[in-house]
C-alpha cells in the first residue's frame, strides 16, 4: 500500500521525467528530502535522472513560487542591462504548486515577475503541511531521528521514544484555516482536487486579537516581535519579497534603522506586512522559516482579512483582477475619514 504522498511522489517523478525528456522544460522545480527529518529542500531537476530525487510529503513548507523567478532567470542567456531580450521563446520550467503557491504565481504574473508561458504548472491539492515546531513540541523538544508519514498520522521516532501523532493536530495554522487548497492555475494535476474546503472560523485568530483592547493589542504586538533577531528569514522565504534592495537594507531613504531596537523591529514588521497587503496568500512560508517562532502571519492575515472585508478581494484568485492597491471604486468605504471635512458623500 502506498500513502497518498507516496503516490504523488511517484507521479511527480514521472511527470518531471517526461517533461525533461521531451525537452518541454529545461528544469523542474520541486522538493527533495533534506538531511534531517521533517525538512524538505526545494530542488531543481535539470536532467531526467534528477527526477528520481524529487519527493513529496507533508513537510513541503517552503513556497516554491519564491524560487521560480530565480530558476527562470538562470535559464536565460546573460545580458547587459539595456540589451533587448533574446529573440524566440526562452526555456521553460516545470513547477509544483498547491493552492497558495499558485496564487502567489498569479500575483507574480501580474507583477511581471514571471511569464505564464514559460512555466509548466503541475498542480497538487494541498492536504495541509505540517508544522515541524508543533511536532517538536509534542515530543518535548527531544531530538527526532526519523518520521514515518502515513495518510493520517505521523510516527515520530527519537532516542528511546516512538510517538504516534494525529497528522491534523500538527498541521500548520495557515493550512488549517485554508479554504483554497486547490491550485487556481495549472497545466496538469497530480492526484485529486478537493473542490475547496469549509473552515468554521477562518479568521478566528485575528478576531481574537481584534477583540482585545488597544493596550492589550500593543502588549501582544510587542511580545510577539520581542524575540526577533532581524535575520530576515521571513523575508527571504516570501515569494513576494523580490526588491533588489529591501527597505531594511536601504540607506537612502532609511525608513528603518538596522539595529534590533524595538522601534526599528516594529517598523520592520509593520512595513514588511504592509508590503504584502493585497498580495499575501497566507502560504505560511515566513512563519515556517522563522527560527524564533514569531507568528508574523498574524500581521499579514489581518491585512488579508481587511482586504476581503473592505474590497471583497482575495489575492491571486483571478488572473485578470487588479491588485487592490492599484485600483479603487468611487464607493470604497471611508468611515475612517474624520467627519469634519465631509461633504456631499453619500455614506
Amino acid at each position: 500500500m502506498f500513502t497518498i504522498n507516496e503516490k504523488i511522489t511517484v507521479e511527480i517523478r514521472k511527470v518531471a521525467r517526461d517533461l525533461l525528456k521531451k525537452g518541454e522544460v529545461s528544469a523542474f522545480l520541486g522538493y527533495t528530502k533534506g538531511t534531517v527529518p521533517m525538512v524538505m529542500k526545494p530542488f531543481v531537476a535539470r536532467r531526467q535522472e534528477d527526477a528520481e530525487r524529487l519527493s513529496w510529503n507533508s513537510f513541503c513548507v517552503l513556497n516554491l513560487a519564491n524560487y521560480l523567478p530565480l530558476v527562470l532567470k538562470s535559464l536565460e542567456p546573460p545580458r547587459r542591462p539595456n540589451e533587448p531580450p533574446p529573440e524566440g521563446p526562452l526555456p521553460k520550467v516545470g513547477v509544483l504548486v498547491t493552492g497558495c503557491w499558485s496564487r502567489n504565481m498569479v500575483v507574480q504574473i501580474k507583477e511581471n515577475q514571471i511569464e505564464r508561458e514559460r512555466v509548466k504548472i503541475i498542480g497538487i491539492s494541498s492536504r495541509g503541511m505540517v508544522d515541524r515546531k508543533k511536532v517538536q513540541a509534542l515530543v518535548d523538544n527531544n531530538e527526532i531521528t526519523e518520521v514515518i508519514e502515513e495518510d493520517h498520522k505521523l510516527i515520530v521516532k527519537g532516542h528511546g521514544f516512538t510517538r504516534e501523532i494525529n497528522r491534523w493536530d500538527v498541521v500548520r495554522d495557515n493550512c488549517k484555516s485554508c479554504v483554497h487548497p486547490d491550485p487556481v492555475i495549472y497545466d496538469e494535476v497530480i492526484g485529486d482536487l478537493s473542490g475547496g474546503r469549509q473552515v468554521p472560523k477562518r479568521f478566528g485568530d485575528i478576531q481574537e486579537i481584534e477583540d482585545m483592547d488597544i493596550e492589550e493589542r500593543w502588549q501582544w504586538f510587542q511580545e510577539e516581535i520581542l524575540s526577533c533577531i532581524r535575520c530576515y528569514a521571513c523575508r527571504n522565504a516570501c515569494p513576494l519579497c523580490y526588491c533588489p534592495t529591501c527597505f531594511v537594507d536601504d540607506s537612502r531613504p532609511q525608513w528603518v534603522g538596522k539595529s534590533i531596537d524595538k522601534t526599528d523591529t516594529a517598523l520592520f514588521h509593520i512595513l514588511r506586512a504592509f508590503h504584502c497587503a493585497g498580495r499575501c496568500t497566507d502560504c505560511g512560508a515566513c512563519e515556517s522559516a522563522c527560527p524564533m517562532g514569531i507568528r508574523m502571519r498574524l500581521f499579514t492575515k489581518k491585512l488579508y482579512k481587511d482586504c476581503m472585508e473592505l474590497y471583497g478581494f482575495e489575492p491571486g484568485l483571478k488572473i485578470d483582477e487588479p491588485l487592490p492597491l492599484t485600483t479603487f471604486k468611487l464607493e470604497d468605504p471611508q468611515d475612517y475619514i474624520l467627519q469634519q471635512g465631509q461633504k456631499g458623500e453619500e455614506k
Binding site: I214, E215, W218, I270, D306, Y336
Partner: peptide, 8 residues
C-alpha cells in the same frame, strides 16, 4: 486598521 490592530 493595521496600526490599530497592533495597538496604535
Amino acid at each position: 486598521r493595521f496600526l490599530e490592530f497592533i495597538g496604535i
